[in-house]
C-alpha cells in the first residue's frame, strides 16, 4: 500500500512518544482499540490549572496510519483547551494525513483516544 508523505513522516519520526505517570492528578490517559483488531492507542495529556493541555504523548501498536494519526493528534492537542481538543474530528485527521478509505478507522481511533484522555482527566478532578 502506498502511504502519503505525511504518514511516512510521522511514522519515521513520530512526535511525542512516551509516557506520563498515569496516577498524577494533572494527567489524563486514554487507551482505545484492542490487540485482536490490530491497533491499540494510548494517548496521554497533561493539563494545567487553566484547563489548557500543556503536553501530550502517545504510544501506539498498529499500522503506519494508526501511528501517524496518534502522533499527529499529540501535536494538535497541545495548547488547546479541553473543549477545543474535544472538538477534533476524525475527518480532519484523515484529511491532514490523506488516509485512504480502508484506514479511516485509524483516525476514528485517534479521535476516540483524545476523548478518552479528556474523560479520564475530568473524572480524576471530580474524584
Amino acid at each position: 500500500m502506498a502511504y502519503s508523505d505525511k504518514v511516512m513522516d510521522h511514522y519515521e519520526n513520530p512526535r511525542n512518544v512516551g509516557n506520563f505517570d498515569k496516577d498524577e492528578s494533572d494527567v489524563g490517559t486514554g487507551m482505545v482499540g484492542a490487540p485482536a483488531c490490530g491497533d491499540v492507542m494510548r494517548l496521554q495529556i497533561k493539563v494545567n490549572e487553566q484547563g489548557v493541555i500543556e503536553d501530550a504523548c502517545f504510544k501506539t501498536y498498529g499500522c503506519g496510519s494508526a501511528i501517524a494519526s496518534s502522533s499527529l493528534v499529540t501535536e494538535w492537542v497541545k495548547g488547546k483547551s479541553l473543549d477545543e481538543a474535544g472538538e477534533i474530528k476524525n475527518s480532519q485527521i484523515a484529511e491532514e494525513l490523506a488516509l485512504p478509505p480502508v484506514k479511516i478507522h485509524c483516525s476514528v481511533l485517534a479521535e476516540d483516544a483524545i476523548k478518552a484522555a479528556i474523560d479520564d482527566f475530568k473524572s480524576k478532578q471530580k474524584g
Binding site: P14, V17, G33, A34, A36, V40, T60, Y61
Partner: peptide, 24 residues
C-alpha cells in the same frame, strides 16, 4: 516496541489477556 503500549504493559508484567479492551 519502543512505540508499543502493549510492550510497556508486558514489561510491567500485565497479562494482556486479562485487560478489558474497548471494542471498536
Amino acid at each position: 516496541r519502543e512505540l508499543s503500549p502493549l510492550w510497556d504493559m508486558y514489561k510491567e508484567g500485565i497479562d494482556l489477556s486479562t485487560v478489558q479492551w474497548s471494542a471498536h
